[in-house]
């Protein structure tokens, strides 16, 4: 099924998915989403406040992301610093925070899977392994 754009009619939250959330996570209104065009979504998102995330902010976002999960950011600070520098180099040079340990294919749809954090929990380097980690090693299974 193809993903589409949805806009909350109360607070203008934008959702991208095959179906809208029943409850708007921002304003908590029920059944508030209406389908809109990609162009309208782009205009709304493009006109929003600047939300450029620097390395420190991204690192903090990853800590919050992992806090409720069975994985954590790699405790090796040197490795994390190298990976974050690569992720941000890739964003500057190629437009997205691509994983520094996999090459983009140039197929836009396929390359979305390389944006960090990627869906590494299904990868063979993580799934079912007690010492599982994502391919690049930024995320490791929590002990």
């Amino acid at each position: 099924m193809k993903k589409r754009y949805w806009r909350c009619f109360v607070c203008n939250d934008i959702h991208y998915g095959i179906a809208p959330p029943e409850l708007c996570p921002t304003c908590k209104v029920l059944n508030a989403y209406v389908e809109i065009s990609a162009e309208e979504a782009r205009r709304i998102l493009g006109g929003g406040p600047a939300t450029a995330v620097g390395e420190d902010d991204f690192r903090a976002a990853l800590e919050r992301f992992t806090a409720g999960n069975e994985f954590q950011v790699n405790p090796d600070p040197e490795k994390v610093a190298l990976l974050l520098s690569g992720i941000f180099e890739n964003e500057r040079n190629h437009g997205f925070k691509f994983c520094p340990c996999r090459l983009r294919t140039k197929d836009p749809e396929e390359d979305l899977r390389l944006i960090c954090p990627c869906h590494f929990t299904v990868h063979e380097t993580y799934k079912g392994l007690p010492d599982g980690e994502c391919w690049c090693g930024l995320f490791v299974r929590r002990k």
């Binding site: 490795k79 190298l82 990976l83 520098s85 690569g86 992720i87 180099e89 520094p100 340990c101 090459l103 690049c136 090693g137």
Partner: peptide, 9 residues
């Protein structure tokens, strides 16, 4: 084939 910021490389 390697990447400059890849720890495995």
């Amino acid at each position: 084939f390697h990447g400059r910021e890849c720890p495995h490389c």
